[in-house]
Design a protein around this nucleic acid. Sequence first.
DNA 1: TATCCTTCATACCCAAGAGTATGTTTCCCG
DNA 2: CGGGAAACATACTCTTGGGTATGAAGGATA
Lengths: 213, 213
Amino acid sequence: MSDTTTNSPSRSERYEELLDAAAECFQSRGFDATSIDTVARHLGATKGRVYHYFPSKMDLFNAVRDRGMDIVFQATDPGYQADLPVLDRLEAMARGHVRAMLFHHSFMLVLKDGLLMRRYTTTTEFQKESLSQHIARRDAYEARFRELLAKGLAEGSLRAGPDPAITVQTFMSALNGPVAWFRPRPGDTPQKYEAIVEEIVRFAMQGLRAYPS
Amino acid sequence: MSDTTTNSPSRSERYEELLDAAAECFQSRGFDATSIDTVARHLGATKGRVYHYFPSKMDLFNAVRDRGMDIVFQATDPGYQADLPVLDRLEAMARGHVRAMLFHHSFMLVLKDGLLMRRYTTTTEFQKESLSQHIARRDAYEARFRELLAKGLAEGSLRAGPDPAITVQTFMSALNGPVAWFRPRPGDTPQKYEAIVEEIVRFAMQGLRAYPS
DNA sequence: TATCCTTCATACCCAAGAGTATGTTTCCCG
DNA sequence: CGGGAAACATACTCTTGGGTATGAAGGATA
């Protein structure tokens, strides 16, 4: 107890601090406009601290992006694994996905940026590997939604156009909406968040459901 | 007829060439990663040409962004002005919006980038003015959708959650979907485009429609 | 034909920022 | 308590790219 703080933070805590700060900066200013000094200043530190944990700016960004992917996977996995009717599983996944969009907004914005393929100057071999792995994970994630939609189509409980891939994309676009228009505000209540979640999920599920025309 | 071309291009034609090239570059690499030299090289020219038409990179970007806004307004205006039931007007607007997303994909991507508020280093007074005007136009654009939704709610033909603003946002997110996942391909046919349009519009309208639960 | 003016190309300047090299402090371990 | 490694801070290098200053070529006009 040499410091004013209770105890010195562990390495992994420091790592998390850095990830959070980086997510915040990348989210608000974008990749290029965010300098390493910006991230460091966000922590009251300097470049040395950042480069002590990450070999390059690109690797830092990739770490944030990968963390974002972890989050959506974990948020939707219970729904996907659930032993329920297809339609309920899909709705649970949708709900988890939208919740992640709201509660981990910074990481989700970075995740979206990472998927929108600009800035593909993968210099290192490690980065190239990291990228292709990320693409694979994104495909696997979308495949879960496609799988459930296909099951629902087979059952007759769901409906899609001639090309179900487009339907899934549109479905997920609706779920991803908050990334574009939502900003967390100081006075936000959990109730407000849940109201947003429910409305988006309702909209998206209704777009998918089979109705007598 | 001194050249191989029929005649020397007019000033406005040159301007359009520049806008198109800039839209293409900004779309594929993003704002920061696109250098003025990149845009120039895209035209087989050098910086001199670009700076002859635009005072700065930011102004060039803004011009592309504003053009994008022009496009969506023109694409949806007939539907908005039409003398039809609210639901049909909204569907016509949606159809025009999605068509714009596909047929002017580059400009639409830049438009979305411009709305996602990064890079707000508006140095010039002119740029600050340009930005606030653009925000106003975006608000006016979204207001048209909100207006028709409100009319539909009053009629009972449409349905929304407790906060209709969220419903509109989700509706438009679905329409904007192609910005994220669509890439024009060499072999694309108009039929393919129309199929995408119809499916997205169907999905989005169904999410909005009032159904007996 | 002399002279602008337009329309660019070339050459240059300069700041910002990604890395790097090297201190410096603190903590741990023997 | 001494030595080393972790965890940074400081001070530098060097490239990239926005912007500018200037030149050059072609057309229009008098």
